[in-house]
């Protein structure tokens, strides 16, 4: 067992545990913190996958911006205590069906993984994925999506401002 595999396994366990903790948490703040933990482990995995730039972006965008926003909203609304008793009879079959379907989806993924990716080899070539390389790609072949994304962000900003404006 190589150190990489060991660290991966540890990270994966933390990650899965955090994810399960997130969806089962009764407290939204805890759920958010679990999700941050999950994001952190994923960021470390990006590092392991030769994606340091994305790892940093993952931390600053997801952990630093998105999840802070979540926490803000949770705290502003005082919505952290979740009372989710099932009240609708319609939804009674919902939970088991969701779990069964989820399990089936996972089984499909596992099946594909075992039959297709089992024999895949290691990385084809070593490559840099620092800000320079990403930037060159963004302002090269991905220029249009990049510009579209910037417009999207602008629109989202305006939308958020309009939505939450005091009437």
């Amino acid at each position: 067992m190589t150190p990489e595999l060991l660290s991966f396994i540890i990270l994966a366990i933390i990650s899965i545990a955090a994810a399960i903790g997130m969806i089962t948490s009764r407290n939204a703040v805890y759920a958010a913190l679990f999700l941050i933990l999950n994001f952190g482990t994923v960021a470390v995995m990006y590092l392991m996958l030769n994606a340091p730039f994305l790892a940093i972006i993952q931390v600053s965008v997801y952990a630093g911006a998105i999840m802070v926003l979540f926490l803000f909203v949770i705290m502003l609304l005082g919505a952290e205590r979740l009372n989710e008793r099932e009240t609708r009879p319609v939804m009674r079959w919902h939970r088991p069906l969701a779990i069964v379907l989820g399990a089936f989806l996972l089984a499909l993924a596992l099946y594909v993984l075992l039959t297709r990716l089992g024999q895949s080899t290691a990385s084809v070539n070593v490559f840099g994925a620092g800000p320079l390389e990403i930037g060159l790609q963004l302002f090269g072949p991905y220029l249009l999506p990049f510009e579209v994304a910037s417009v999207l962000l602008l629109v989202a900003m305006i939308g958020a401002v309009v939505l939450t404006r005091e009437k």
Partner: peptide, 29 residues
């Protein structure tokens, strides 16, 4: 270490957990 399969496996597991979370939780957040 196989570089892709474990990560994809983890990805699938996390995705499924996310799906179940979407379907089972009632709180919008």
């Amino acid at each position: 270490m196989n570089t892709v399969a474990p990560f994809v496996l983890l990805s699938a597991i996390l995705f499924t957990i996310g799906v179940i979370g979407v379907l089972l939780r009632r709180n919008a957040i």
